[in-house]
Structures are given as C-alpha cells and as structure tokens.
Design a protein around this nucleic acid. Sequence first.
RNA 1: GGGAUGAUGGUGGAAUAGGCAGACACAGCAGACUUAAAAUCUGCAGCCCGCAAGGGCGUCCGGGUUCGAGCCCCGGUCAUCCCACCA
Length: 842
Amino acid sequence: MSEQSVHEPSAPDQTAPEQSAYDFRTIERKWQQRWEREGIYLTRDGGGPKYYVLEMLPYPSGDLHVGHAKNYSLGDAVARIMRMRGYDVLHPMGWDAFGLPAENAAIQRGIDPETWTRSNIENMRRQIKLMGTGYDWTREFATCDPAYYKWNQWFFLRMFEQGLAYKREAPVNWCPVDRTVLANEQVQDGVCWRCGAAVERRNLAQWFFKITDYADRLLAGLDRLTGWPERIKTMQRNWIGRSEGATLAFDVEDVAARIEVFTTRADTVFGTTFLAVAPEHPVVAQIVARLPESRARIEEFAAGLRSKSELERTQLMEKAGVPTGAYAVNPLSGERVPIWVANYVLAEYGTGAVMGVTAHDQRDFEFAQKYDLPVVQVVTDEAGTVQPPLSEAFTDDGVLIASGEYSGMTSAQARTAIAAHLEVQGRGTSTITYRFRDWLVSRQRYWGTPIPIVYCPTHGAVAVPDAQLPVLLPKNVAFTGQGSPLANNPDFVHTTCPTCGEPATRDADTMDTFVDSSWYMLRYLDPRNGERPFDEAIATRMMPVDQYIGGAEHAVLHLLYARFFYMFLIDQGYVHGDDEPFTRLFNQGTLLHGGEKMSKSRGNVVGIDETVERHGVDAMRLFLLKAAPPEDSLEWSDEGIVGRVRFVGRVWRAVEPLAAKAKSAPLDRLPETRGDAQRQLVRALHVALESAQGETDTRRFHYNVTTAKLDELINALTTLLREPGASDDPAVLYVVHALPIVLAPFAPHLADELWAALGYATSVHLERWLAPDPAALAVDAITLVVQVNGKVRARIDTAPGIGEEAAFELALREPTVTAQIDGKQVRKRIFVADKLLNIVAA
RNA sequence: GGGAUGAUGGUGGAAUAGGCAGACACAGCAGACUUAAAAUCUGCAGCCCGCAAGGGCGUCCGGGUUCGAGCCCCGGUCAUCCCACCA
C-alpha cells in the first residue's frame, strides 16, 4: 500500500482527547499496511470447511459514513472469528456500480458517469481499507466493468433462448418536455424532477424476465430457509401473493364476448349483482362499439382516472364507476347483471374484471351503497344469525343460502362443487393467481448493461451472438437529460442483423441494475474468468453463501431476484446443488443520527474519515458493535464512542507492561489458580470466548453482549493487577497471553499490536481461536436465592449441588426469612437446584 | 384496512428454558492523584420511607395463569416497519 492512500490527518481538534500512550493513528496505519503486504486475508484453501460470508454489494455513492461501518464491522467480525476457528473463509468486496445517480451527475454537472463512478469507488475502497476490514481484494470487481456486464448480457441471452426473457408493452413514467422515461424517484408530486412538467403514463415495449414461472418454487424454497428471519420470509410470501380461486366466464348480452372473472369466493356466485371491469379491459371497446351512447361517459371516467397519480388512485380515491349500459349473464343463476367500469378494479391483476358480490365483499358493498345496487345475501354463519339487511359485507366463510342446489353446503364445499360444475360446461377453471408480476428489466437509461438484442426489419428481435459480447456502452455520449442517451447515439444504434447482415438497430435500453446484483456472489468465486461467468466446479464447491448480511430494504426485490436467478442457473446446470443461494440471512438495523436514518440526502452523516482520525478504527468498530444488537437501529453518539476509546487505552495499559513475560504462559492448558479472583479472571476470558463464538453458531451476532463480556474481563484484570505479585501470577499471564486472540475479531489493530508486544513476529489473525473450556466456565460458588411467597428475602452464598433440606436449614438462619414466616405455616417449598428456594407460607 | 415487531433507570442496552430485574457502557455525583486542569484510578447510583438495619413500590396500561411473570394468555394504548382497492 502506498503512502498516498492513507488519509492525511485533518486539522488538530482542540476537543479531541489528548493522545494516550497508545498511539492508535500510527499503530492502526502500520497494521493495515502490513496486512495488505502479507496478504493475510486472501481466501485460504487450507483443507478446512468453506465459509462464505458476504455483505450486500455496496453502491459507490461517494463517501462512506459510520452507517456503512456498522454493516462492515459486523461482517468483518464474523469472518475473522470463523477464519480463526479454522474455516476457509471467503470474504470479498466489490461495487454495484451502475445506476441512476451517476447519470444524474452527468446531466446536472457534466461529469462522465464512468469517471464519477470510478472516483467514488477509489474513495470508498480507501475508506473501507481505512477500517482495517479483512477482505480478499484480489476478487474485487465493479459491475460496470465490461468483463462483468458481458455476463449479464450472456445470461440475458440464455433466458431469451429459454423463453424466460420476453418483450411486451408496459407503462412507464414519461416526461413530455424532456422526452425521456423517468424512474419513480424522479417523479416528485407528479412532475418531472428536472423540468417540472406533468408526468404522463405511456406504454413502451420492454423486456421482462419471467420470474412468475418460478413463483411456486420461490415460495416453497422459503420453507427450507430456516436461517432467514421469519419477517423477511413473510414479506416475500406476501409479495408473491399466491391466491387460489377460480376463473369464471360471464357471457355478455348482445355482444359476442365473454368476461372472465377471477374469484377466491366461487361460493358467492349466486350473490353477484353486477360485474365490474377495469377501464382498460378489452370488453369496454366492444361494448362501446355496440352502445355508442355510453362512449362519452366511459371515456370521461377513464380520463379522470388516468390524470390521478398512483398515490391518489390507490389510497385516496373513493370507489367510483360508471355503468356501461351492457349486461352480463350469471353462468349459474342465469340472472342479468349490469356491467360497470370501476376505479377499484386493477387491469393488471387477475383478469381485470370482478364479479360484484355486494353482500360478501366490502369493496363491492361500498360500491353498491353508493350506486344503489341490490345486496343479495347468499352465505350466512353456521347458526344462521346473519340475516339481511346487512350493514356491512359478511366476508366470512359460512353456509350457503338462496343458491339453488348449493344451498346448505359450506363455503369450502360449494367452492369445489361450483368450480367443478362450471368446468364441465367450459365456463370455469380452478386458477392460481399471483400478486407479483414478471420482472421488468428494461431501463431507458445509459449507465447500465446494454440489452444484447438487435432489431432487423426482416428477422425481428435477434440475439447478439455470444462471440460479439460484450455489447459495449459507447463513450461519446451527450448527457442532456433529454431523450434517451443510447437511442440518440447513431454509432451505437445502427448495426447489422446478425442473421442476414442487412442494416438493423440495437435495443437502446439498458438492464435494471438488480440484474447485476442477482448473480455477483458467483463472480467473486472466479472473478477473472474470461471464458465463462464462473467455473462450474468452483461454484458448486463454494456455493451457497453461508452468511449473507445486509439491510432489510432488500427484503423483497434483490433477495427475490437473486433467488430466481440462482434457480435458473441451477436448472441450466451452471452450478449444482441446492437452489437457494443464501443459507443464512442477517438483517442489519439502520444507523440513526438525530432520530433519522443517516444518509447523504438528509445531511446528517458522520464520516468515517473524521471518526477514525479522532477516535481510531478499533474504537469506532467496538462502539458500533456495542451500542445495540445489530438487527436494531442504533442512534449514533459522539459521547458513546468515548467509552470505547477508554477501553482500548485500558487494555493497552494493563497488558503492555506484562507482555514480555506473558508469552511463556502456555495457552494449551488452563493455568494454576490460587484464589477466587484468579478463577474469576480465567472464567471471564472463557465467557468472552464463548460469547464471541456462540454468536456465530447461533447466528444472532449479539456482539453488544460480547463486548460487555470483554469489559468485564478487562475490569477483572485491572482489579487483580492492583494486588502485589500479580505480574507473576500464572492466571494473569495466561489471560494477558490470550487476550489478543479474543480481541482480534473486534479490535483487530489493538489485538495485533498486543500480539507483537508479546514477542510474536506473525499476525494474531493467523492464530487459532481458543475453544471455551468447560472447566474454566464451571462455577465453584453459587448464590442461592431464598424467596418467601415469591419475594426475594435473602441470598445465600454456597457451593453448587446443595440439597433442598440443607438449603432450607440455611434459609431458616436468615432473620429476613424467619421474620416473613413468623406466625405462619410453611405450606410448600419450591427448590430449583443451585438457583432458588421459594418458601410458601400462610 | 391487513400483517409484523417492539415498549425495561437520565440515556444505549442486559437478563439461556417462567426463577436475583437493571449486567456492561454513556451521562451524572463524590473521592484519590495534580499547583490546577485534562487524562487516569476508586466509590455511589431505579423510585419512595428510614440515621441504619430494613421495608414498600417498580419492566407501557388493565385483567389472568403460576409457588413465582420483563418473559406465557386475554383486552387496551402508543411507536416503528412492511403490505395496502389483489377480487
């Protein structure tokens, strides 16, 4: 590492604590340089079990703040503990480098997106190294490297071949002034972020990945992911939104059309009093052709709806509709029901049409109230107490009434019977509907992976041959914020058809950046492979990721897309094994400052450079681990970190004077202990070891508790050191010798400085972890709690294993106990060995 | 509207399986060291009564189960997050 890459100290800060004897600035820099020089964090192939720990790929936004540090401190501690425990740890880092902010910088400040991105990466890499994190940097890549995005294109073509990538029209946000598509975050209050023009919805032909083909596998896989938080799995299930029901067909009177409706309540068909369709439903055009007098009314209604923002449409609007004038026929009862266009029917879900069952669906009920439609109850509860008139929809399952031959059946029986009956007549089928849609991957942007498709007047959409990949992003691009940068670039767009060689045009869209992050965990395994995205054998050996760490904001999209992508890779045989890519998932809590999430846009960031310069890396990392459990959000505290600065100094002052002696204290067996204080000290060390190691086993990562155990350890050590002769005590020297090992995952620089002071020439991070020793953890004295009627009245210090009778006799010697029993009869005794004696007296 | 999670001292938090509530730390107070301060070290510290010994109360509120509830059950309040016209 060169000198330039180390941060220059900022101006001296008068409020900063005076430098103690432990010069963290010099020491931390020294170790970081040495670790890098010696390559101690390169992935080892030492014949141990593999352990792949991965933090979610960061976006290179510019500067790291302590919120990022919270994430990396955790992953780094996990990686270090597992490495010391003998696992062959893979812990890589890279960059999610495509995306909108770089393009915005280009539009607003005229900076080339690549220049902007690369310089951010440089800075963030420097800052991550400044934290002393143990990544294997030889595997680093950025998703904007052509050597990476080439494989995005390659996978796109494989999906295209399999019919999993397809093209269809879909609405986008369109700015009529800038003639460009806007991302949702570029639409603010319905207007363009740049020019303020009102944003329109427009249909464009775009590429989709057929993730819905995998819906049931994505659902089923969740049940096997026992190492994932239940909350995230629930969110994914809700997102997929599997719904079992039936599709039923209603004939339209006087129009040669059928309206299909999806319903989960086929048992309520007899209660249908109207049909509601989305304004976009094709039947609307057919009805208008037949009943021209309805045209104006329907078009006005649809136009009013289109002018509303998404927010107004989904949250604020009252249910409303207009009658089309046409009627449909109930396939079971034969009754005529009016067809309405309604604002609460979604074109994209189900069939875009619903049967209006006013008595048994709350939305339909409200609609009926507003437009005075009949309410026909066809289900009642078991006891038959629910009777008309209804004041609200009765939405529970129950028993059918007024439903012809189905009356008397339960809802569940009727659903099956009705679906079967209609199926025979060709008017119904059992259907499973999903809430989530196929994955729209086209983005009308520059800074992303070009879609490797060419449009030929003769041959249509043609795949770019593999040999011609990557389709490179052009360099000579003007960023005006108007139009599409690639579509505006003739050199890029004009090409020849791979099939016939005639003039053709390229697809001018780029891929959603979620494509980039859907398979990156595989590229780390074989990052320089030029022939394949990754080697099959290596991937099969190293996958899945054992521990994935990141924020809950990716609970649905990224984590669902990556699971889908991996299932595809498994199916295609690019990697073998289980089709879930992330065995365990841990969701970090966010870092708050001033009660709000720390972020550049909120202007409440605390930078890494300043924090490290002022307090030191180890203190920062220890504070971020100590202040709260890692899944909780955590309020940054400039005061709180002072406690960790003190801890670092206290450890150094306690250990350093004894370091020369301590190396000869053997670590392979427990030391002789003379007294209770010595036994407590050795026990404190093993409690800390157990805490640190247990957290990786149980996956809770509650290092806030582990750091408290380290506090207790150092408190016990400094207390003992005040006793005469302590510096020759075998227990003290044993603990001093072992201390760097237990500190290594959390304060890696301090640990190595202590290890060197002991006289070691090699890094402590190459040492083996100490196994917590049950003999050291055993206690030789307990405090037995004595309760009278459930209230603590005395505590008796005694040896473990004391019997109930003996305990009772001791308890009766305590005046605070006898005072409570006095004049009462002892009715009962509850005895919990080595813990508690409860005397029940009345 | 639906779902999930949570609520513990001045603050962040701890409490393995229903068994000592408040570990550890921050802030605070007192003391030691110092000419003085900083740094460091030591001690105190949930609330109320009491000189003390000790006692009463106490984990959002109200009930319940239990010898015993921060933890389990029922009802409520508040907070955060997610989904939200999904037929």
